[in-house]
Simulated assay, not measured.
Amino acid sequence: MPVPGSATCSITYRPDLKLLIGRWLHDAPVATLQADYAALLAAAQEHDTGRWLLDVRRRDQLDPALGQWTTSTFYPEAGARMAPQHLRIAVLCSPARLAVYAASARQQEYLNYGLAAERPYQLRLFGDEAQAMAWLNS
C-alpha cells in the first residue's frame, strides 16, 4: 500500500507484515532527506507500526550531519512517538556504503552510537534484504 512520499523516497506500508518500507531513489540535500524521515514517521504513526525497512542503497553520499541527526535526534524522537511499540529499524545498505562506514572514523562514531543496545530504538545494518526482513520479523 503506497503512502504519499516525496520525489526522493517511496514509502510503502505492508499491512500483511505490519511493516513500513522507505526506499530512497537517489541522494538529496540533508533538508530533503530530513523531510523524508519526517514523512516516514508520519506514515508509521498513521499505520501504527514500529518496524521499518529503510533502503538507502541508492544514496551514495554520506553526510556526517545526517548521520549524527538520525542517530542522536530523529530515531530517539521517533522511538518516543511510537511508544509503547519498540522501534526497530533495518537499514539496507550497498556494499559501497558499508565500506565507507568501515573506513570513516566519524561515520563509525555515529554508527556505533546508533547501534548501541541502550538506545530507545533498535538499529541494524544489512546488505541483504531477506536478512533484514527476517530480523524485523523475529
Rank of each mutant, 00 (worst) to 15 (best):
S138G: 15
S72N: 10
D128Q: 10
S6R: 02
R14W: 13
P95T: 13
C93F: 13
R88K: 13
G50M: 04
Q45I: 11
Y75E: 03
L66C: 01
A7L: 07
A42P: 08
W135S: 01
Q108I: 09
I21C: 15
Y13Q: 01
A134D: 14
Y101S: 11
A90C: 11
C93W: 07
A38E: 15
W69M: 03
L136V: 08
G50Y: 05
N137S: 10
G50P: 05
R51C: 08
R23Q: 14
L111E: 10
Y110T: 08
H86I: 12
D36V: 01
A103C: 13
E129C: 03
S104P: 10
Y113M: 14
N112D: 14
L92R: 05
A96E: 14
Q107Y: 12
L40K: 00
A103N: 13
L62H: 15
A90D: 07
S6L: 02
R59K: 09
A28I: 04
M1N: 05
G79Y: 03
L54M: 10
N112T: 07
A130Y: 03
P76N: 12
S94V: 06
P84I: 01
P84F: 06
E46L: 14
L136I: 03
E77V: 07
A39E: 06
G5H: 01
L66K: 00
Q68W: 08
M1C: 05
A44M: 09
E77A: 12
T49N: 08
A134P: 03
Q85C: 08
L40M: 13
Y101P: 02
H86D: 05
L123E: 01
W135N: 04
Y121Q: 04
E109D: 13
S6P: 04
T73G: 03
A105S: 13
D128H: 06
T73P: 00
R97Q: 15
D36C: 07
M133I: 15
L17D: 13
I89M: 09
G114E: 00
Y13H: 10
P120G: 07
C93M: 15
P64D: 04
M82L: 15
S138P: 10
Y101I: 15
R124W: 03
T49H: 08
E129W: 03
P2N: 06
S6Q: 01
T71W: 00
A102K: 09
S72R: 10
H26D: 10
A42G: 08
A78D: 02
G67T: 01
